[in-house]
């Protein structure tokens, strides 16, 4: 049996190594790339991201990762956006007015409530709002690690929320596209279970 091959899109920003190591921990073969041909050969694609929305989108466009991501989504390869990598999948963000997102998921990114400290930098509990294979088999109200000041608005694609000054979108899924506002690669055993779910979907897709 060959290992599922997962491309982690590298556009020069952020800690990509943790995502790669977490994928390898659950038995995938994983590599960092911004090369269209390499991504085409992969069974699954991960788009990580940290920092400001505008800066991330600029780097995604400069490196051609925008077209690579759009192509992977069109081919319905399992796709996972993490943190600002999730936010990049939407249409726009209050953080960087005028900057277009990838528009793979309808909706925009909004700022967290000003009644709580920002960023939310802590572990918080997931509340499932719709079934998703990405979050299958997790303990009830599982704890995962968040670091963010913005999050997607509530849409039909949302599959989980957390409570931080109100309901905050934590995960979304639309067909083969999955996304988490939290960091599964930094969420201990629960996060590893989520990564394993994603890799299992990639394995099944080939």
């Amino acid at each position: 049996m060959t290992k599922p091959l997962i491309a982690v899109l590298d556009y020069g920003i952020g800690n990509l190594r943790s995502a790669q190591k977490a994928l390898e921990r659950v038995g995938a073969e994983s590599f960092l790339t911004a090369d269209a041909a390499e991504v085409e050969a992969a069974d699954g694609v991960v788009l990580p991201g940290v920092g400001a929305f505008g800066r991330v989108m600029e780097a995604i466009r400069e490196t051609g990762v925008d077209a690579i991501a759009a192509d992977a989504v069109a081919r319905q390869v399992p796709f996972l956006g993490i943190c600002v990598g999730m936010q990049a999948l939407y249409e726009s963000s209050e953080e960087s007015p005028g900057v277009e997102g990838l528009g793979v998921l309808p909706g925009r990114i909004i700022e967290l409530s000003d009644e709580v400290k920002r960023p939310q930098m802590q572990w918080n509990q997931l509340h499932s709002t719709a079934p998703s294979p990405l979050l299958a088999g997790l303990p009830q109200d599982a704890w995962v690690y968040f670091v963010h000041s913005f999050a997607p608005e509530m849409t039909d694609d949302v599959v989980a929320t957390c409570n931080y000054g109100g309901d905050v979108v934590a995960a979304a899924q639309r067909g083969s596209v999955m996304a988490t506002q939290f960091h599964p690669e930094k969420s201990g055993p629960v996060g590893i279970a989520i990564i394993a779910n994603f890799v299992a979907l990639c394995d099944g897709a080939t």
């Binding site: 920003i13 952020g14 940290v50 920092g51 400001a52 800066r55 600002v84 960023p119 670091v147």
Partner: peptide, 8 residues
């Protein structure tokens, strides 16, 4: 903060 984001 500009290079890596405030969270770093």
């Amino acid at each position: 903060a500009r290079e890596f984001g405030s969270q770093c």
